[in-house]
């Protein structure tokens, strides 16, 4: 069994009276694809928000590569190797696809504002290098031809994939995908599953929130299920599918309406 990269220990997240996460514990292991499922409003996106520092957890601890990341600034968490996509697409619409990705690659540039202003060689070199890198990422995700289009004018499916390319631009070790297949047709879902595997094979670790059961079960190495903010299962896909509590949680919730 490979070692863990991210660990949530007894994480509780409260908003006023609402307990969005209640004593949640699980780990993500290096180079695996971990599925995170649960009915709507179960707290999945909240898991992403506490990992990426959008919210400060009420109780518990989150460690990434053995170091606690609670209370660290959000951009530093990203710089440290965790990147995410958003359930409701949040690209920078007035930038081109390529610029969206380059902006993410800026995370690891050595050159800052002053070296850019004076055109120092380090800045020029990094600019050229990352432009190539960004284009490679677009090609890797399969949307290279859209590089020069404004993000807001892109077709919906391309926007969803651009979110992934942008997250990869920050050069993460752990990639968090929040419902990347929402609104996709079956063919697109198959395509996406391939892409996610390709990402893992390229050396990334993936934590995947997804509603489509066949997609999650097909692509994940393990699956964590939460319901009402609590973890109710954490196992291999085949086992989770037959878990009584999981079936109960999903009972009456028609699979994948969205």
């Amino acid at each position: 069994m490979s070692e863990s990269i991210l660990k949530l220990d007894n994480v509780t997240m409260q908003f006023g009276g609402v307990v969005a996460l209640n004593d949640v514990t699980f780990e993500v292991r290096k180079q695996e694809i971990l599925g995170l499922i649960g009915p709507n409003g179960a707290g999945k996106t909240t898991v992403f928000n506490v990992i990426t520092g959008v919210y400060q957890i009420t109780k518990g601890s989150i460690t990434f590569n053995g170091k606690s990341i609670s209370g660290i600034k959000r951009y530093r968490i990203t710089k440290g190797g965790i990147a995410r996509t958003f359930q409701n697409i949040r690209l920078w619409g007035d930038m081109t696809a390529l610029e969206n990705v380059i902006t993410a690659t800026d995370t690891h540039k050595k050159s800052g504002l002053l070296s850019g202003l004076f055109g120092l060689p380090v800045s020029r070199k990094e600019e050229r290098r990352d432009k190539v890198r960004a284009q490679e990422l677009l090609d890797f995700i399969g949307i290279g031809e859209y590089a020069d289009r404004l993000a807001k004018n892109l077709p919906y499916g391309v926007q969803r994939r651009l979110e992934i390319a942008r997250a990869l631009g920050t050069n993460p070790k752990l990639l968090l995908l929040d419902e990347p297949a929402a609104g996709f047709n079956p063919a697109e879902k198959v395509e996406l599953a391939k892409t996610i595997r390709k990402i893992r094979d390229a050396g990334y670790t993936v934590l995947l929130i997804e509603h489509d059961m066949s997609l999650v079960m097909g692509v994940s190495d393990r699956v964590v299920v939460i319901d009402f903010g609590q973890k109710i299962a954490d196992d291999l896909p085949a086992k989770v599918q037959n878990d009584k509590r999981v079936i109960e949680a999903y009972l009456g919730v028609p699979d994948d309406a969205s």
Partner: peptide, 28 residues
């Protein structure tokens, strides 16, 4: 000069969606 470099992109991303910028590693 700044607009076409890192600083320009950082400002642009902040203007369009500051939260997304911060989460994509921009020291907003």
């Amino acid at each position: 000069r700044l607009s076409v470099r890192r600083a320009g992109r950082a400002w642009e991303s902040i203007r369009q969606d500051e939260d997304a910028a911060e989460l994509m590693g921009v020291p907003t």
